[in-house]
Each structure stands twice: as C-alpha cells, then as structure tokens.
C-alpha cells in the first residue's frame, strides 16, 4: 500500500502526465493526417486509374501487412538516408501516419465497395459526373458505414503509440518505464496507472465517436 502512495507522488504523476500529453499530441496529429491521406488513397484505389491505382494499392498492402514496429524503424532509421531527418516526435507522427493511412485506405476502399453499385449507375443516369456521384451519393453513405471500423482503428492508433518506446519516444509508456526503472517497487502502481490512463483516453475516444455518430448522422 505504501508503494502505491509513494509511487503516486505529484512529481511522478506530473511526469506521467507529461508523457500522456505527448501520447495525445502524437495521436491527434496522426489521426488527422491519416484520415485525410487514407481517404484520398482509398479513393485512388477505388477509382482504378490505370497503373497508378495498382501501384498505390500494392504499397498500401505492403505497409498494412507489416508490423508497426518495422514501419517505426524504417521511418526513424531509414528516412534520413533520403534527406529527411525528422526529430523524434515528428518521426513518430510520420511513422504512425504512414501505417494508419494504409489501414484507413483499406477501410475506405471496402466501405465504398459496400455501397450498392446500382446507386452510382443511377446517379450517372441522372446526369451527375462520376466524381459528383462519388462525392454526393456514395461517400456520405460509405463514411457512415465505416465509422465503427474507423473508430476502432483510431483507438488502436492511440494504443500503438506505446510501441514507439523502442526508439525512446518520451510518451506515456516510456515515462512509466523510467519511473519503475529507477524504483522497481513502483512496477505495479505504474502498470495500474498505465492501464487507467490509456483506458480513459481510448474509452472517451469511443464515447466521442458515438456522440458524433448520433448527432451528425
């Protein structure tokens, strides 16, 4: 019991919250970027532009089927070789965005495909262009259909930021490790804190999504 009281001293809690802040910053940035990039990529893939769509699709499949850890390594260790030399936080945002964009693209592609083909044809017959049909008729329905998948993908994103401890990203998990590494009596209190903090963030994200879903749709 004493361990718990000592472990949750203000100094330690503040250190954990600093880590949580980095986790949130990286998550929010990556969610925004990967939602935009992923939707674009998904549409490109759906549009079946000769060669271009196939190449984009192949790259998406490669990224999607690799463990995130490898994407993190390639981004942080590999990108400087082609002239981009990101610091740790931009590097983490880039790695998460690359991986999650590919995942979102796949969700968007199957979301669009799930909309009845007849609707596009009907829209075309009514004089809309292909792009208008996609934008006005298909996408709004598709986005509604794929909201649950997107939300759980973004929750995964928040959780997966913890993997970036391996490149010493100063986020929540890493800060907890620094604390229990300096005093191993704090292992259990730190894991309890980790579980609670991640749970709060992820669960509120899903509650927020529910709220938006109900009030916007």
């Amino acid at each position: 019991m004493q361990n718990f009281i000592d472990a949750y001293s203000w100094i330690n809690v503040r250190f954990l919250l600093q880590g949580l802040w980095i986790t949130i910053v990286i998550s929010v940035a990556s969610i925004v970027i990967s939602f935009i990039v992923g939707t674009l990529l998904g549409i490109i893939r759906y549009a079946k532009i000769k060669y271009f769509s196939a190449i984009v699709g192949f790259i998406i499949d490669i990224i999607r089927n690799l463990p995130l850890l490898l994407i993190i390594f390639f981004t942080y260790f590999g990108l400087p070789n082609i002239g981009i030399k990101p610091e740790i936080i931009p590097a983490a945002i880039m790695a998460m965005s690359i991986f999650e964009s590919a995942m979102v693209a796949e969700i968007v592609r199957s979301g669009i495909n799930s909309i009845d083909k007849g609707q596009t044809e009907g829209a075309l017959a009514n004089g809309l262009t292909r792009w208008q049909a996609l934008r006005i008729i298909v996408l709004p329905q598709a986005i509604k259909n794929m909201t649950p998948a997107l939300v759980s993908q973004f929750i995964s994103l928040v959780k997966d930021t913890s993997l970036a401890t391996i490149i010493v990203l100063p986020e929540l998990m890493y800060h907890a490790q620094i604390i229990y590494g300096q005093n191993t009596n704090y292992i259990i209190p730190m894991f309890v804190a980790l579980a609670v903090l991640y749970f709060i963030v992820c669960y509120s994200l899903s509650l927020l999504a529910d709220y938006l879903h109900r009030h916007l749709a």
Binding site: F73, Y76, F77, G78, L79, P80, N81, K85, E87, I88, I166, I167, V168, P170
Partner: peptide
C-alpha cells in the same frame, strides 16, 4: 538525443 544500445548506431549513421 536519448538513445538505447539498439538505436545509437543507426541514429549516428543516418546523421540524427
């Protein structure tokens, strides 16, 4: 830049 035994050489070689 905080490094571990695993990350230090790649970070040196890539100029970080």
């Amino acid at each position: 830049v905080p490094v571990t035994s695993g990350t230090r050489v790649p970070l040196l070689k890539n100029g970080n």
